[in-house]
């Protein structure tokens, strides 16, 4: 569906050149929700703009929905953009138009007749749950409602791909969840491919099938969301994962635990249901103290972490850890000195 090959994007010339996207290779399947996560300045905004031709790559090829974006003509590009729509962090609605007129805008661009536009707009208003607000102006809407208008507008021309540029970053947590639910249902109902960029791991965890992690213009890690949660390879990925698996203040809590051995267990999928703790206490002569526990639900299954304090003689503790490895539970000893 989407294929990026050795894509580079540079801004400026000479010594002031900034490499925003550096040799990126990506493949995104049809019907999947693909997340790109990175801190600001990592190049993800530029990357997503390469997908609908708002930016042209300096080198490399971008193929999307059958179009080769790096070499299309201006006319083809306009056609392609009707199939690749986009929603934005700040919604970018026309304040001079009502909800209805905003949703109608891409249909006007596509040259659809008035009666047909009306019908389609009403369907879309229903789809995004804005019934009763069709004649309101954007200034009269809440952030969540504005994004619903943005989504309806993006869906107007039956696109094949929906690009989300930090679509929930300006929203409060509750509204974020409702918008994410809407995106998931659209993905399932319409079979639309969704590419989203975000700096919040929560968004990735909640709706993405696969994720790419970006740092300094490079994609440093790609994989299914569960895989990445289970065994993040890069330091930056670990930081993002800990955003959702470790409640705030974990470090402070650990610093106040005196003595014993601290271990962090990670469970994936079914293993979350095994009574690991009970057998640990029964089999070994150690005391187990639960410091912190957490289960995150990703799209592909649950992922849990548990931080334990093991008290006992060194030999028993070592044997207990070996036993955990044997069970296939990912175990990591945390240094708390």
């Amino acid at each position: 569906m989407i294929q990026l090959k050795d894509v580079n994007k540079k801004f400026g010339i000479g010594p002031k050149t900034i490499v925003a996207v550096d040799k990126v290779n990506l493949e995104i399947e049809e019907g999947e929700i693909f997340g790109i996560i990175g801190y600001s300045g990592a190049g993800k905004s530029t990357l997503i703009r390469l997908l609908n031709g708002l930016e042209k790559p300096s080198s490399g090829t971008v193929k999307i929905a059958g179009y080769e974006m790096s070499s299309v003509s201006a006319k083809e590009l306009r056609e392609a953009r009707k199939k690749i729509s986009m929603i934005f962090q700040h919604f970018n609605l026309l304040w001079s138009r009502t909800v209805k007129q905003n949703i109608s805008f891409p249909l006007e661009i596509a040259g659809i007749k008035k009666a047909e536009r009306e019908k389609r707009v009403n369907e879309l208003i229903e789809l995004v749950g804005l019934k009763g607000r069709e004649d309101a102006y954007p200034s009269e809407l809440s952030g969540g409602q504005k994004q619903r208008v943005g989504i309806a507008r993006a869906l107007a021309n039956d696109p094949e791909v929906l690009l989300c540029d930090e679509a929930t970053s300006a929203l409060d947590p509750e509204t974020t969840d409702s918008i994410l639910d809407l995106l998931t249902s659209i993905n399932e109902r319409l079979g639309l491919t969704i590419v989203l960029i975000t700096h919040e791991m929560h968004v990735i965890r909640k709706i993405c099938h696969r994720v790419a992690v970006m740092e300094a213009g490079n994609v440093v890690e790609t994989g299914s969301v569960l895989e990445v949660f289970q065994s993040p390879k890069e330091a930056i990925t670990k930081r993002f994962v800990s955003q959702v698996t470790e409640p705030a203040g974990t470090e402070q809590v650990l610093a106040h635990i005196p003595g014993g051995t601290l271990i962090k267990l990670a469970f994936v999928g079914e293993k979350t249901e095994h009574p690991v703790l009970a057998s640990l206490i029964r089999k070994f002569d150690i005391d187990v103290n639960i410091v912190q526990g957490n289960i995150s639900h990703t799209k592909a299954g649950a992922y849990g972490t548990l931080i334990l304090q093991l008290l006992g003689n060194e030999k028993d503790v070592d044997m207990a850890i070996a036993y955990l490895h044997e069970l296939g539970v990912q175990t990591e000893v945390i240094d708390n000195e």
């Binding site: 708002l54 590009l77 306009r78 953009r81 009707k82 986009m86 609605l93």
Partner: peptide
């Protein structure tokens, strides 16, 4: 807002 112009472009205007 430049974003609004960008949005119109992204719709193929």
């Amino acid at each position: 807002d430049r974003g609004v112009i960008e949005a119109a472009k992204s719709m193929g205007a």
